[in-house]
């Protein structure tokens, strides 16, 4: 259920969302996993989706919004097909992570948490990816790339369509 291509029609997404809501409706503490699944379906969390989730779970919309904005994993706006996360961990910091970030940022023309106009990339930072031995590191989607230089990082992202 990781549709990020944007070609799935609304009704299919809606069906998947309804199925997810039914699955978590009676689960204690089900709000966060449900939001995670909904974000997998839609790529982000539109207002209407959060409203449906709140209704289905019997949770005030204000609380759902509070939860969504608390966790950095949730997004209120559409995101790029490829998510670049440059690690800002201590090891990466001392080995030049900020230069890597600046290099990528300059290449894409977007700042932190920005998405390119063609929805190809979203640029983010992440606290620590736990791959400190390979610092500086970035993650593109689920792939970790290590021992980066700004040039190497730019070359790497170009491989992601």
């Amino acid at each position: 259920m990781t549709c990020k291509c944007g070609h799935v029609d609304e009704s299919t997404k809606q069906e998947a969302l309804q199925a997810a809501i039914s699955k978590y409706m009676a689960v204690k503490g089900g709000l966060i996993p449900l939001l995670q699944e909904a974000q997998d379906i839609y790529g982000y969390l539109p207002k209407e989706v959060m409203q449906q989730i709140s209704g289905g779970m019997g949770i005030p919309f204000s609380k759902t919004f509070g939860v969504v904005t608390f966790y950095s994993q949730f997004h209120l706006k559409p995101r790029g097909r490829n998510i670049i996360r440059v690690c800002q961990g201590t090891a990466c910091h001392v080995r030049g992570a900020s230069k890597v970030f600046d290099g990528v940022s300059k290449k894409l023309g977007v700042a932190k948490n920005g998405t390119t106009e063609d929805l190809r990339y979203t640029l983010e930072t992440v606290a620590c990816l736990g791959a400190c031995g390979l610092a500086p590191v970035m993650m593109v989607n689920d792939n970790t790339h290590g021992k980066l230089t700004p040039d190497k990082a730019v070359a790497t992202i170009e491989k992601y369509e």
Binding site: Q88, G89, T90, A91, H93, A127, C128, G130, A131, C132
Partner: peptide
């Protein structure tokens, strides 16, 4: 929820 920057033993 190992989150300390620079720690990856739990992972």
């Amino acid at each position: 929820d190992e989150g300390d920057p620079g720690a990856f033993m739990d992972r």
